[in-house]
Every structure is written in structure tokens, then in C-alpha cells.
Amino acid sequence: MSARPALTRDRIVEAAVTVADRGGLGAVSMRSVGREVGAEAMSLYHHLRGKEELLDALADWAFSRIRLPRPDQPWRVAMRTRAASARAVLFAHPWALGLLESRRHPGPALLHHHDAVIGCLRDAGFPVRLAAHAYSVLDAYVYGFVLTELNLPMEAGEDAQEFAEGLALAAEDYPHLVEMMTEQISGGTYDYADEFDYGLDLVLDGLEERLSATARVDG
């Protein structure tokens, strides 16, 4: 029989990710993670002070998976790439949605991520206040989109047209809603996921306009 791998902080965090992926954040406890890693819960306390530190580590784990801006990227490309990466990570690990910005003791990956995003915007000429606004609105858009995407009411294998037909809405009662659904969804090609890039462009266009206005005022 092969020896069990040594218990480490990284193994504990990976086990916590597995537990959270399977049962949500509410399923994560020192006991459940101990079972996942094949150790008594008390053994985990040699590596983590308790559940709150474990949650800090989970938030850090999630941030470490989101792609950082590269120094050679224009700010708009960097923000688009980061937003797409964040969406992918959060869709794959929905438990992270309520965790990313909730920690009073953020880890190094989380802090480095924030610093890199702010640095990218500042290097592009964003004043501090506008950089803060940009970061906030981009994250609000990504987090909100993923939350909606995860909770769409379609059944497995059901497309948007089938869902709309099942609602059987009367045009005389909901004329604008029926008009939009007819134009957007009919034909079976509509996919809500396609809205992400369009909405992100709206946000980035607005930020670009604000940045240009700031430059004109400063100039």
C-alpha cells in the first residue's frame, strides 16, 4: 500500500475546493475537509488556524486562477481578458462569488491581483478615482452576469426559444417583452452567454469615454 501524501496547507486548500465544488461553500468545514483529505479535523489546525483562515485561503485560491493584466497589454485588452477569465473561474466555482471580496484578511494572491489591475489602469492614465470606479463597475458587471448565468431557469437541454414558448405570454398583456423575445430568441440561435461580450463592450466604451474626457480636462 502506498504511503498517504504528507498533509500540507496546499493539499487542505485543494480538498476544500473539492468540497465546495461538490456541495457549495456551506459544505466547507474543518471536519468535511478533513474527511476529503483523509485526516482528522484536528490535524488541519497544524496548518490553518480554523475555518476563517481556510475561507481566506479559498478566496486566494480563486484569485490565483484569474488571469492578471500583462504589462505589454493595452488597458482595454487587459480588462477584457481579465473579465473573461474571472467569468470562467466563477462559473466553474460558483461558491467563489460570495467569497472574493468578503475577506477581512486577504491573502497575497488576492492583494497582488488587486494591485496589478489598479496598476494597469493607472499606467494607462486613469486617475486614482476613475481607476477605482473602473475596477468596481467591471467586477460588478462580471459578478452579476455570472450570477444570472448560473441561475437561468432553463432545464438541461432546453434552449431559450423552448423556454419562451413554454411561458406562452400574450402580446396584448406584455407587448414589449413579447416583441423582444420574438426578435431575439426566435430561430433557436439565442444564447444568453453571448450577451457577455456585448455588455462588457458597453462598460469599456463608457470607461474609455471617461478617460478621454479626463485627458481633455487635464490637457
Results as ranks from 00 to 15, higher is better:
Leu97Phe: 04
Asp205Val: 10
Ser64Thr: 02
Glu158Met: 12
Phe196Ala: 09
Val13Arg: 08
Phe126Lys: 04
Ala156Ile: 04
Gly107Pro: 00
Phe63Val: 00
Val117Asp: 02
Lys51Ile: 09
Asp173Thr: 08
Ala86Asp: 09
Asp159Arg: 09
Gly24Ser: 03
Leu55His: 04
Val128Trp: 15
Tyr45Asn: 06
Arg11Leu: 14
Ala59Asn: 02
Ala134Lys: 07
Ala96Met: 05
Asp173Lys: 13
Tyr198Gly: 13
Glu101Leu: 12
Ile66Val: 14
Ala96Ile: 00
Leu68Tyr: 02
Gln184Tyr: 12
Ala88Asp: 11
Ala156Ser: 10
Pro69Phe: 04
Ser64Arg: 00
Leu25Ala: 07
Val17Arg: 05
Ala3Ser: 11
Leu7Met: 00
Ala6Met: 10
Trp95Gly: 08
Glu162Gly: 15
Met154Trp: 06
Asp115Glu: 15
Gly26Trp: 01
Ala86His: 12
Leu100Arg: 03
Ala171Glu: 15
Leu177Arg: 02
Leu68Asp: 07
Met79Tyr: 05
Thr81Cys: 10
Glu155Thr: 06
Thr18Arg: 14
Ala168Tyr: 09
Met42Ala: 13
Met30Val: 01
Gly119Pro: 11
Phe63Thr: 07
Arg216Asp: 15
Arg31Val: 12
Leu207Phe: 06
Val137Phe: 05
Ala62Thr: 04
Arg11Lys: 00
Arg103Lys: 02
Arg22Cys: 06
Leu44Ala: 06
His113Gln: 04
Leu204Gln: 12
Tyr198Lys: 03
Leu138Cys: 11
Arg22Gly: 10
His46Tyr: 08
Pro108Asp: 01
Val142Leu: 03
Gly34Asp: 03
His47Phe: 00
Ala160Lys: 04
Pro71Gln: 14
Asp159Val: 11
Tyr135Gln: 00
Thr148Arg: 14
His114Val: 07
Arg11Ala: 12
Ala88Ile: 07
Ala15Pro: 10
Asp159Leu: 08
Glu179Phe: 11
Ala83Gln: 00
Leu44Asp: 04
Tyr141Lys: 07
Ser102Gly: 08
Pro69Tyr: 08
Met180His: 11
Leu147His: 14
Leu90Pro: 03
Ala57Val: 02
Leu121Gln: 13
Glu52Thr: 00
Leu68Lys: 06
Ile185Tyr: 03
Cys120Tyr: 00
